[in-house]
């Protein structure tokens, strides 16, 4: 093997690694970005569905724990994603908690949870608040449909 051949082989390897690396770097970064947008959706969907199942099938203490887990996860998600869907989902998690407290007969805790829920929804008209019944009805519809991922909560909640 001549010296020129050796040099050209080494050069081919170096150029190959550089070209592949450049392509791999941008794709790895893009993949990371995509995962960061998919992961919050998946996490939100999992906890909402879990809270819904527990609400309909478990005892009150376990249903409460599931609702609190959903609130905790939704609040964590809010630290990285701010939009009306994320806020609406957090509002619905509080509605779930309110419904659990209502079933447990804890009126004060129920009212407090509904108050927390209302903070995350835009009022249907200025100066008008969403009623507890309206919020319950919306969550019940979400449960019937599948699970609690609001697509356009502001539109659907408008009375």
């Amino acid at each position: 093997m001549t010296r020129i051949m050796k040099v050209s082989f080494v050069l081919s390897a170096v150029l190959g690694i550089a070209a592949g690396g450049a392509f791999g770097y941008s794709e790895g970064a893009e993949l990371g970005e995509s995962m960061r947008s998919i992961e919050p959706l998946a996490a939100g969907s999992v906890v909402s569905e879990f809270a819904a199942y527990q609400f309909h099938h478990a005892d009150l203490e376990h249903a409460r724990q599931a609702a609190l887990l959903e609130i905790s996860v939704r609040e964590q998600l809010r630290t990285v994603a701010h939009n009306s869907d994320v806020d609406g989902a957090l509002g619905l998690a509080y509605v779930r908690l309110a419904m659990v407290e209502g079933q447990a007969g804890n009126k004060a805790a129920e009212s407090h949870a509904f108050e927390e829920a209302r903070k995350w929804f835009s009022p249907p008209r200025p100066g008008q608040e969403l009623s507890d019944e309206r919020l319950k009805e919306f969550l019940n519809k979400m449960d019937e449909y599948g699970h609690s991922i609001p697509s356009e909560p502001k539109v659907k909640l408008t009375q």
Binding site: S12, I17, G21, Y25, E27, G28, L31, G32
Partner: peptide, 18 residues
């Protein structure tokens, strides 16, 4: 050699970058 190195470089850097 070029194609092999590019493939290895692509896989390794994509993994590290991700």
């Amino acid at each position: 050699i070029f194609v092999g190195s590019a493939f290895v470089g692509y896989k390794a850097v994509r993994f590290v970058s991700y």
